[in-house]
C-alpha cells in the first residue's frame, strides 16, 4: 500500500511553495471529513499531503469595528466559543450545530467551507452574512465573496492552486437571524443541509433580506431577495406569494429537485412568520 508523504509547513510562504511543487497535494485542515468517509483501517489517500496546522497565518483571529477576521484553520468549536456578540449569531449557531463536540474541536472553518461533495453548514450562513474569503497563491492574494464558491450548477466550486487564508465576516445588525439545520444533526448525509435567513427592517420596510440553503446544492436567489427589499412590513400575502413563486421558478429552471425546493420554501415561510412576529412586537 502506498504511503503518503506529509509536509508540515510553518509559514504561508512555505505552504505556497509546496503547493507549486506538488499540484495534486491534498491540503489537510481538520481532516475530519476525509477520515470520516474512509472507514478502512488504512485510508486511501493521495501521495502528498500538506498539513496546515502549523501555519500561524491560518490560525489568526482578529476583529475590527466592522468585521471579524477568522483564520481558515479556526476550529468550529473556537467559532462558537468566541461568545455572544463576538461572532455574528448566524455563524456561531451554524458552527455549534456541526457534528458532535469531539468533532467540532478538530474540524475547521476552511474545511467546512471548502467541502468538495457538498456545502458545509457554515457556507449558507457565511454567504448570507456577505462574508468574503481571502485566497493566496504564488501570484498574490485575492478576495472573493463566499457566495461565489458555488458554481452556476449550484455545486461547490473550489479554487485550485490557491489556499484559503481567512474569512472576513462583516458585523451588520440583523433584526432576524434564523438558522435551521435540516436532516440528521450528528453527521451529514445526502438529505442534510442548513438554511439561513437574515433580515433587517428600517422605517417600517424591509431594508435587507437574504435566504440561503446549503446541502448537496446551494439554493439562493438574489433577484427574489431584491424584489422583497423595500416592501412594507408586515409583508402582504401577495408579496410573499410572489416571492415564493419566483424562488420556485428559479430553482425549478435550474433543475433543483422538488424536496429541496419544498424545504427551502418551508424555511422561508418560517422566516416570514418570524419577521411578522418580530414586527408585531
Amino acid at each position: 500500500m502506498r504511503v503518503s508523504e506529509i509536509f508540515t509547513p510553518t509559514s504561508l510562504i512555505e505552504t505556497l511553495g509546496l503547493l507549486r511543487k506538488h499540484e495534486d497535494a491534498l491540503l489537510w485542515a481538520g481532516g475530519t471529513e476525509i477520515l470520516r468517509l474512509r472507514v478502512a483501517r488504512r485510508p486511501e489517500l493521495p501521495p502528498t499531503i500538506v498539513s496546515l496546522d502549523k501555519v500561524p497565518e491560518l490560525r489568526a483571529i482578529g476583529r475590527s469595528d466592522r468585521a471579524l477576521d477568522l483564520g481558515a484553520m479556526s476550529s468550529l468549536a473556537q467559532l462558537s466559543a468566541l461568545g455572544e456578540g463576538a461572532v455574528p449569531e448566524a455563524l456561531a449557531e451554524a458552527a455549534a450545530g456541526v457534528g458532535t463536540e469531539g468533532l467540532r474541536n478538530l474540524a475547521t472553518l476552511g474545511g467546512n467551507l471548502l467541502g468538495r461533495e457538498r456545502f458545509g453548514d457554515l457556507f449558507p450562513a457565511l454567504a448570507c452574512l456577505d462574508a468574503i474569503a481571502e485566497f493566496r497563491s504564488a501570484s498574490g492574494s485575492r478576495w472573493m465573496a463566499v457566495g461565489r464558491l458555488a458554481g452556476r450548477d449550484r455545486k461547490p466550486l473550489i479554487p485550485t492552486g490557491e489556499i484559503l487564508v481567512r474569512v472576513r465576516v462583516p458585523f451588520d445588525p440583523w433584526d432576524l437571524s434564523l438558522v435551521r439545520k435540516i436532516g440528521y444533526p450528528l453527521w451529514p448525509a445526502a438529505d442534510s443541509g442548513l438554511f439561513t435567513c437574515l433580515a433587517r427592517a428600517a422605517k417600517g420596510s424591509l431594508y435587507e433580506f437574504r435566504a440561503a440553503l446549503g446541502g448537496p446544492l446551494f439554493l439562493r436567489d438574489r433577484e427574489t431577495e431584491t424584489e422583497l427589499i423595500g416592501k412594507r412590513l408586515p409583508l402582504q400575502r401577495r408579496d410573499i406569494e410572489s416571492a415564493r413563486a419566483s424562488w420556485r421558478n428559479r430553482f425549478e429552471e435550474d433543475g433543483v429537485g422538488a424536496p429541496w425546493i419544498e424545504r427551502f420554501l418551508a424555511a422561508v415561510d418560517e422566516s416570514f412568520d418570524a419577521l411578522r412576529a418580530g414586527a408585531s412586537r
Binding site: I6, T8, W28, G30, G31, T32, L35, R36, I49, S51, D53, A77, T100, E101, G102, L103, N105, L106
Partner: peptide, 13 residues
C-alpha cells in the same frame, strides 16, 4: 485539553 475523536486524527497530527 480538548475532547477529540481519535479516529479522525491522523498520526502526523
Amino acid at each position: 485539553g480538548k475532547l477529540a475523536l481519535a479516529c479522525l486524527v491522523p498520526a502526523f497530527r
